[in-house]
């Protein structure tokens, strides 16, 4: 399907060029959007001229090109090699940041395995702790909070699974994990509200009052507190509950996959 002019991939094609020429070729390919070819160039510099200053710069550029191309494993490998050999270089912060991004950009929907979220959190924490004054620390902190919040929503998802099935104690234990270990995330008010729901269903009104009180003092303006107040005092039906016809329930659960 047409030559993309990647004659350079045959072995030895680039041997005659100087490292700087290969680097410049790589950069121009990067500008023209051919990230995987650019990455190939950058890694070739390191193989052909492992001692040059260009090899070092080529390595970090390779990590960047792979990452932009979505080849996350290769991006990670290049970034890691850069960190092994040039820990003291000022680009090391960027390498660590790229490493973190390679996990972060693969974080998947809450219904799926969150292994990558954990790895993203660890890599982001390294960026924040080891390179606090690098230009990437601030963004790493922001992304850390988002990934941390995502872990909380995984706990919430499982908690809602159990409360929807009527397994109130299992749900309580999951929502308590959110309240205790993830209180800085946006899910805490909903977790407290779900605790009120579960305790009321179990008939443990004292615990329900406690959960409602914590929700009231910390998140008084949220709609979750308004709903909890109604549940605890039993006055006034909530508008959105009454209107739910069984047809919309089927549409939401079967077609859209929201099943609570």
């Amino acid at each position: 399907c047409g030559g993309r002019g990647d004659g350079f991939r045959e072995s030895g094609a680039l041997d005659t060029l100087t490292p700087e020429q290969i680097y410049i070729q790589g950069e121009s390919l990067l500008e023209s959007g051919r990230e995987d070819d650019a990455a190939f160039h950058f890694t070739e510099i390191e193989r052909l001229y492992p001692y040059s200053e260009w090899a070092k710069r080529g390595l970090i550029m390779a990590a960047f090109a792979f990452h932009r191309d979505g080849a996350y494993e290769d991006a990670r490998a290049s970034a890691q090699r850069y960190l092994d050999f040039y820990p003291a270089e000022e680009d090391a912060a960027y390498a660590q940041y790229l490493l973190a991004l390679s996990y972060y950009d693969q974080i998947d929907d809450v219904g799926r395995d969150q292994g990558l979220t954990f790895q993203a959190l660890q890599a982001l924490r390294t960026v924040i702790e080891v390179y606090p004054d690098s230009p990437y620390a601030a963004d790493a902190m922001a992304k850390f909070d988002l990934a941390f919040d995502h872990l909380a929503s995984k706990e919430m998802e499982i908690g809602r699974f159990y409360i929807a099935g009527g397994h109130y104690t299992a749900a309580v234990n999951r929502f308590r994990t959110v309240v205790e270990d993830y209180q800085t995330t946006r899910h805490t008010p909903e977790a407290l509200y779900r605790l009120v729901e579960a305790y009321v269903a179990l008939g443990l009104n004292a615990e329900a009052q406690t959960a409602g009180a914590i929700l009231g003092t910390n998140f008084p303006t949220t709609s979750w507190y308004r709903d909890a107040y109604v549940l605890l005092t039993g006055r006034g039906l909530r508008p959105d509950v009454v209107g739910e016809s069984w047809l919309t329930a089927i549409y939401r659960q079967v077609i859209r996959g929201e099943w609570i």
Partner: peptide, 22 residues
């Protein structure tokens, strides 16, 4: 306590928005 002490609770359909969508 037993089942009678509990109350049938209509669970809220609202959930906190998720950051990393499908």
């Amino acid at each position: 306590f037993d089942l009678a002490d509990g109350r049938v609770v209509q669970l809220s359909g609202r959930t906190t928005a998720e950051i990393f969508a499908d």
